[in-house]
Design a binder for these strands. Structure first.
Length: 847
RNA sequence: GCCCUGGUGGCGGAAUGGCAGACGCGGCGGUCUCAAAAACCGUUGGGCUAACACCCGUGUGGGUUCGACUCCCACCCUGGGCACCA
């Protein structure tokens, strides 16, 4: 492929036409070039292109119906980066598709009686057209939609693979239930205040048989982040979400009412405080509660359990400060001390974490401390700060991480340290009372959804054979075309007998299909693999093609997916690697989170807040201006808040584009010298080259870090400089430096304004597309100034400036400055205390 | 409460420890025009000045340094994440 911009005039090229493009009329040129590029296949990334590959991926959108300005911001930024990488010589693959299953389609079906598939496909058609006005390099030949049977066939296939690998299982679980959406939600979809992420309704708990993926089996590997460049923030969020903590599992014992002795394990990170245990806590849902409770306490305990169960998350949290609980009447035995301690139930112990049982150490755990104070339970210190004798009655809060052990038998005087913790674990393990244990905050991934518009889970329930997977040859399990929506907790698929009733793949007898569908995060956990081979009807993908394109070199999407999609996709790939389906461990090599466009401080979405449509802005100013304007709002990771003043910035961009247009067309006919015999001012040419190379340096550096706003600033400065130079020295435009400068300006601007720069490029007589050129190469020698300005500071304050030739030696510069009238006036005859000289930049005279 | 961001003109925002406010919007003044718009030129942090000069200025208070928007400590506020995780 062509072509580095050569510093000299290229011989053998047709003579340059000038001013051929006429006035800048974006509407006329944009659709023209979009068509030309499409016909050329410019945006299609071929599998056998010899250039190095670059997989530039942006999170695929949900087909909500219309692209709003926030979508534009997101996708334009991704496209600018992809175009930049293409100019860097890469074979850029930049696909687009739709994350097309999900609730809104179903809600539309319920509300408006339109079939979910019709709604979705017509939205996609509309958005595809809108996407095309953007002038991005989407490779439409690779388009996918996760609701296509050709796609979800393989989503189901992956489910079967996970099932075969023992990573999918069915279990009854207290699940998050949204009473409004009538579906189960993943933990990730429940907001901190206990409400539904989608609709805001208060989430309830229900026990249901559900399908889970064993993401917890990968917890440690998910903490690794090996060889990936991700924002620290995102890695921290995932790390905290996984929530690894090391400690011990210790078996306490307790006698039930019927006389059986039960071993009740607890998890603790502080086994070293076991001599300070004064009570034992169980979660209200703990299965042993009913067997342990004494007849006298039964009524009170049952009432508490009932209350805790009926309470929603939000209600449990509203009582956060005050500790509550009930004594069971039973006692547990501390295996280390042999002591008997009362067993209480309390809702601050969670059934879902650890073992649902906790040893209460009020002296050294703040929650236990509060509980003990509320319930009047004893507090025993097992750590005392050096040289102090704290009395538990005087304590106002728990003592954490301080002092040396006391009241701890053979362990006395050991310091509060990881080594001490290890001593306890070794001791407990040796005596068979427990063992070292790592716990995670992460729960298994619940994927069942009681919804219609999703990929059906390919499982059959047979009265003879139990749970039977659908054989691969029978995939896909197709969704019925028409369904009826009825209120209630079940999937609408339950009411489609042709769907539900099937035969058992094993015995051939009558059986029922699973009617739940999969969480859409399942669809999005592998779509980036499908893009590499989107039309394969034999396999999910050809392994050679995945090897060719994966991993994704640059992934761009919002930070809101940090603990959901981005975590699930990593798990998915690791699982596939273990099954030998892929060969890499991490799907996304580099990750970038773009900022969000807010509308008066609120999120822009169809359901909440008002959306800004780009259509008017595009028809008035052209796509290039809107692209540049969005990128000029600020750094790409920051987003912007849209208000009355925001659009005003478009004026400046429009002016800039007109100026570039004018520069490239030699600023209107006859304004500058067209005398071809004129002598070209070589110092003006040197100025042009210096400005150009300084700009190249800045532009490349800023593109690389997604600072598109300062790319534009640099290009604006450069074009302003070109105007200034040509005004002063009109003959420069007869020389080679000028032509190179204009060409270079256009290439550097091309990723942001692809249509206009293409029009100008070809009007300037170039035969091929500007988008197959290369980024110019920065030459520091050509950027070097001949004269530098030395800032003169006295006591750190700027007092003067002095221009000196760039090569002048330190001694000479100092001598010149120290003898200058401004300096002598302040310094006088006295010798300065200190003189700091920064070569070519600054001198600071301390007096 | 814990973790992570950020705090700079009227506005969006620039600044490897070295000229704070690049670039752009808006404002003001001008050129062109019968006039307006557009375009172009000049100017634009605040204070005090006729002007030069000088002083003050990057959330607040300290510190390090010849020199701090930048580094360190404490605090205040904005945004995001987690939240009784034993």
């Amino acid at each position: 492929m062509d072509t580095q911009i050569k510093p000299e005039v290229q011989t053998g090229e047709a003579p340059r036409k000038r001013g051929a493009a006429g006035g800048y009329n974006p509407q006329a040129i944009e659709s023209k070039w979009q068509k030309v590029w499409e016909e050329m296949g410019l945006n299609h990334a071929s599998d056998d292109d010899p250039r190095p590959k670059f997989y530039n991926l942006v999170m695929f959108p949900y087909p909500s119906g219309d692209l709003h300005i926030g979508h534009w911001y997101n996708f334009v930024g991704a496209d600018v980066y992809g175009r930049f990488m293409r100019l860097n010589g890469y074979n850029v693959m930049q696909p687009m598709g739709f994350d097309a299953f999900g609730l809104p389609a179903e809600n539309a079906a319920i509300k408006r009686g339109v079939q979910a598939s019709k709604w979705t496909y017509s939205n996609m058609a509309n958005m595809r057209q809108q996407f095309k006005t953007m002038g991005a390099i989407w490779d439409w030949e690779r388009e996918i939609a996760s609701c296509d049977p050709e796609y979800y066939k393989w989503t189901q296939w992956f489910f079967l693979k996970l099932y075969e690998a023992g990573l999918a299982y069915r279990a009854k679980a207290a699940v998050n239930w949204c009473p409004n959406d009538k579906t189960v939600l993943a933990n990730e979809q429940v907001l901190a205040n206990g409400t539904c992420e989608r609709c805001g309704a208060i989430v309830e708990k229900r026990d249901l048989e559900q399908w889970f993926f064993k993401i917890t089996a990968y917890a440690d590997r998910l903490l690794e982040f090996k060889d990936i460049e991700w924002p620290e923030k995102t890695k921290t969020m995932q790390t905290n979400w996984i929530g690894r903590s090391e400690g011990a599992r210790i078996n306490f014992t307790a006698e039930a009412q019927d006389g059986t002795v039960h071993s009740i394990p607890v998890f603790t990170t502080r086994p070293d405080t076991i001599y300070g245990v004064t009570f034992f806590l169980l979660a209200p849902e703990h299965p042993l509660v009913a067997q342990l409770v004494t007849p006298e306490q039964k009524a009170e305990v049952e009432a508490y359990v009932q209350k805790a169960r009926s309470e929603t998350e939000i209600e449990r949290q509203s009582t956060e400060k005050a500790k509550t609980g009930v004594f069971t009447g039973a006692y547990a035995t501390n295996p280390v001390t042999g002591q008997k301690i009362p067993i209480w139930i309390t809702d601050y112990v969670l059934m879902g974490y650890g073992t649902g049982a906790v040893m209460g150490v009020p002296a050294h755990d703040q929650r236990d401390f509060e509980f003990a104070r509320t319930m009047n339970l004893p507090i025993v210190l097992v750590y005392q700060p050096e040289g102090q004798q704290i009395n538990s009655d005087e304590m106002t809060e728990a003592l954490v991480h301080e002092g040396n052990l006391v009241n701890s038998g053979p362990f006395n005087n050991l310091p509060d340290s990881p080594e001490t913790v290890k001593r306890f674990i070794d001791y407990i393990a040796e005596k068979g009372m427990g063992e070292a244990k790592v716990n995670y905050r992460l729960r298994d991934w619940l994927i069942s959804r009681q919804r219609f518009w999703g990929a059906p889970i390919p499982m059959v329930y047979c009265p003879q054979d139990g749970i039977v997977p659908v054989p691969e040859a029978q995939l896909p399990v197709l969704l019925p075309d028409e369904v009826e929506f009825k209120p209630g907790g079940e999937s609408p698929l339950n009411y489609v007998p042709e769907f539900v009733n099937t035969t058992c793949p094993k015995c051939g007898g009558p059986a029922r299909r699973e009617t739940d569908t999969m969480d859409t995060f399942m669809c999005s956990s592998w779509y980036f693999l499908r893009y590499t081979d989107p039309h394969n009807d034999q396999q999910a993908f050809d392994p050679a093609k995945v090897r060719r394109w994966m991993p994704v070199d640059q992934y761009i999407g919002g930070p809101e997916h940090a603990t959901m999609h981005l975590l699930y996709a990593r798990f998915f790939i690791k699982a596939l690697k273990d099954m030998g389906i892929v060969e890499f461990d991490e799907p996304f090599k580099r990750l970038f989170h773009q900022g969000m466009i807010l509308s008066e401080g609120r999120k822009m979405s169809k359901s909440k807040g008002k959306t800004i449509a780009p259509d008017r802005l595009v028809s008035e100013n052209g796509a290039d201006a809107v692209r540049a304007f969005l990128m000029f709002l600020g750094p790409f990771d920051k987003g912007a808040d849209w208000n009355d003043k925001t659009e005003q910035l478009l004026v400046g961009i429009a002016r800039f584009l007109n100026r570039v247009w004018a520069l490239s067309n030699d600023y209107g006919e006859g304004k500058f010298s067209e005398n071809s015999n004129a002598i070209v001012d070589s110092s003006a040419e040197a100025r042009i080259r210096r400005a150009m190379h300084k700009t190249i340096e800045r532009v490349i550096a800023d593109y690389n870090v997604f600072q598109f706003n300062t790319v534009l600033s640099a290009l604006m400065e450069f074009s302003n400089t070109l105007f200034k130079i040509v005004e002063e020295s009109p003959t420069v435009q007869q020389g080679e430096a000028w032509d190179t400068a204009i060409d270079t300006l256009l290439v550097m601007l091309a990723p942001i304004c692809p249509h206009m720069t293409e029009e100008l490029w070809q009007a300037r007589g170039h035969a091929d597309s500007i988008h197959v050129q290369s980024m110019p190469i920065y030459d520091p020698a050509l950027a070097a100034d001949e004269v530098v300005t030395i800032v003169i500071q006295i006591n750190g304050k700027v007092r003067d400036r002095l221009d000196v030739p760039a090569g002048m030696g330190e001694e000479e510069v100092k001598a010149r400055i120290l003898s200058s009238p401004k300096v002598t006036a302040v310094v006088g005859d006295s010798k300065p205390k200190k003189v700091i000289y920064v070569a070519g930049k600054l001198i600071n005279i301390v007096v």
